[in-house]
Amino acid sequence: MSEKHRILIVEDSPTMRQLLVFALKRLKNVEIVEAQDGMDGLRKVSSDHFDLALIDINMPVMDGLKLIRLIRGEDNLKAMPIVVITTEGAKEDRERALGLGANEYLTKPIQANRVLSVAKGLLKIDS
């Protein structure tokens, strides 16, 4: 039996969280954990192991960019793949997020199959 992939979704919008859970549940052997802001995300990522994190940028309490910076500052979290999901479509926003260490940058409105294919690629799951 193959091991379970643990995915963390850090997003303040319940609508987006539900949509992302819907999309990612189509992957086999995944466990999805939700966090409703950057601080909640940091708490969860610090206390548990995750194979992938999907992070929104505009969030209350702590924004996604700050969360990425903090995650990449931790030695044990440096290798965890991060996907940014945001409404910010400008080139400089993308470059800033990727520069901080995000692996992929997806803009809203998202397509569930695009999220799925990016997640598969980062988790190295065959189709």
Binding site: S13, L19, K108
Partner: peptide, 24 residues
């Protein structure tokens, strides 16, 4: 999401979320 609450401010918030995130 639209039918998940009976609080008017919550309903309006959900409408905003849908229009931002799903419509763009």
């Amino acid at each position: 999401q639209l039918h998940s609450t009976l609080d008017l401010s919550e309903v309006v918030k959900i409408i905003l979320e849908i229009v931002i995130n799903l419509v763009g």
